[in-house]
C-alpha cells in the first residue's frame, strides 16, 4: 500500500514538474528577486550598484509624484470596483430574464471584454473626443455643452477612466453574477413569497446574501486589476492632465523603463504588492461580516 502511495506521489510530481518549474521561474523567483533589487541602489545607466537597505522605500514614501500615483490608484479602485460591481449585478439581473434573443444581448455585453486593450483604448479616445466624439455628439443632440475634452480636463480625466473600466469590465462581472443568480434555488423565492416578501425585499433577503461568494470573488479580482491599471493610461492620458491619472502601474513603468531606476521601481512595486494584500484582506473581512449581518 505504502509503495503504491510513493509511486503515486512520484508520478504526481512528475506531472507537476513543468508547471512548477514555470511557477518558480516566472512567479516565485521574480518576487523574491524583486525584493532583493529593491534593497539596492540599482540604475541601468550606472554600473555602481550598492546595498542601501530600505532607503528606496523611504524615498518613495516621501516622493510627491509617487504618493500622488498611490492616491490616484486608490481613488480609481474605490470608484471603479463598487460601481463596476453594481453595474455587473444590474446587467446580470437584466439578462437573467427569459426574454427572446437574450443570448444575443449577453454576447454583445461581453464583446468589450474580449477586445484588444490597445484597440479599445483608441476607441475610447474617440468616444471621449470633444465635439466629434460619441459622448459629445449625443450631448450636442441634447443641446448640452459638447466641447468638454474628457481626457484632458482635470475634472473629468479620472472619472473617464473609471467609466471606461465599468463598461469594458461589464461582461465578465455580468456572467459571474448571472451564474450566481441561476444557482439560487427557486424554492427560496417561493417560500419568501408565501411570507409576503417580493421584489426589493426578496432581493435584499435572498438574492444579495446568496451572491456573497460571487461578490467576494468579483471584488477581490477587480481590485487587483484596478490597482495595476496600465494600458488605458499608457495609451490615452500618459498620466495627465496635471498628474490626475498617473496611477501606480504607469508610474512604476516610467520609473523602471524611462528613468531606469530599477531599484526604486522594485521598491515601489513591493509597496503596491503590500497595498493589494492589505486591501484584499480588508475586503475579505468586510464581505464576511456583511454576510453575517444578513444572518446567512
Amino acid at each position: 500500500m505504502a509503495q503504491t502511495q510513493i509511486k503515486q506521489a512520484r508520478a504526481a510530481w512528475g506531472f507537476l514538474s513543468l508547471s512548477l518549474l514555470h511557477l518558480a521561474a516566472f512567479a516565485i523567483y521574480p518576487i523574491l528577486f524583486s525584493f532583493f533589487i529593491s534593497l539596492y541602489h540599482w540604475n541601468i545607466l550606472d554600473d555602481h550598484r550598492r546595498f542601501v537597505g530600505f532607503a528606496n522605500y523611504l524615498f518613495s514614501l516621501k516622493e510627491p509624484t509617487f504618493l500622488n500615483a498611490l492616491w490616484n490608484s486608490c481613488l480609481f479602485t474605490a470608484l471603479s470596483v463598487p460601481l463596476g460591481l453594481a453595474a455587473g449585478l444590474l446587467a446580470a439581473i437584466l439578462v437573467a430574464q427569459p426574454l427572446r434573443g437574450i443570448t444575443v444581448f449577453r454576447a454583445i455585453f461581453y464583446i468589450p471584454a474580449i477586445s484588444s486593450g490597445v484597440a479599445t483604448s483608441i476607441m475610447w479616445i474617440y468616444i471621449y473626443l470633444p465635439t466629434n466624439g460619441l459622448i459629445n455628439t449625443v450631448l450636442g443632440w441634447l443641446h448640452i455643452n459638447n466641447a468638454t475634452d474628457f481626457l484632458h480636463d482635470a475634472r473629468f480625466a479620472m472619472l473617464s477612466l473609471v467609466f471606461m473600466s465599468i463598461v469594458t469590465g461589464l461582461g465578465p462581472r455580468m456572467v459571474l453574477y448571472l451564474s450566481g443568480i441561476m444557482a439560487i434555488p427557486p424554492s427560496l423565492y417561493e417560500a419568501a413569497s408565501i411570507d409576503g416578501a417580493t421584489g426589493w425585499t426578496s432581493f435584499k433577503k435572498i438574492t444579495l446574501p446568496m451572491l456573497t461568494p460571487t461578490t467576494l470573488f468579483v471584488v477581490v479580482t477587480s481590485t487587483i486589476g484596478a490597482m495595476q491599471l496600465f494600458t488605458p493610461v499608457y495609451m490615452m492620458t500618459q498620466g495627465g492632465p496635471e498628474g490626475k491619472t498617473d496611477v501606480i502601474g504607469y508610474h512604476i513603468y516610467t520609473d523602471a523603463w524611462q528613468n531606469f531606476a530599477t531599484g526604486l521601481a522594485s521598491a515601489k512595486s513591493f509597496i503596491l504588492l503590500a497595498a493589494i494584500l492589505l486591501i484584499s484582506l480588508v475586503q475579505f473581512k468586510m464581505v464576511k461580516s456583511g454576510l453575517e449581518g444578513y444572518g446567512a
Binding site: 487587483i224 513603468y253 521601481a265 512595486s269
Partner: peptide, 17 residues
C-alpha cells in the same frame, strides 16, 4: 496565490532573467 499578482511586480526580474 500567484494568479493574484500580475506583471507589475515581476516585470523587472523577468526582464533581467
Amino acid at each position: 496565490v500567484t494568479m493574484m499578482f500580475g506583471s507589475t511586480v515581476t516585470q523587472i526580474p523577468v526582464y533581467l532573467m
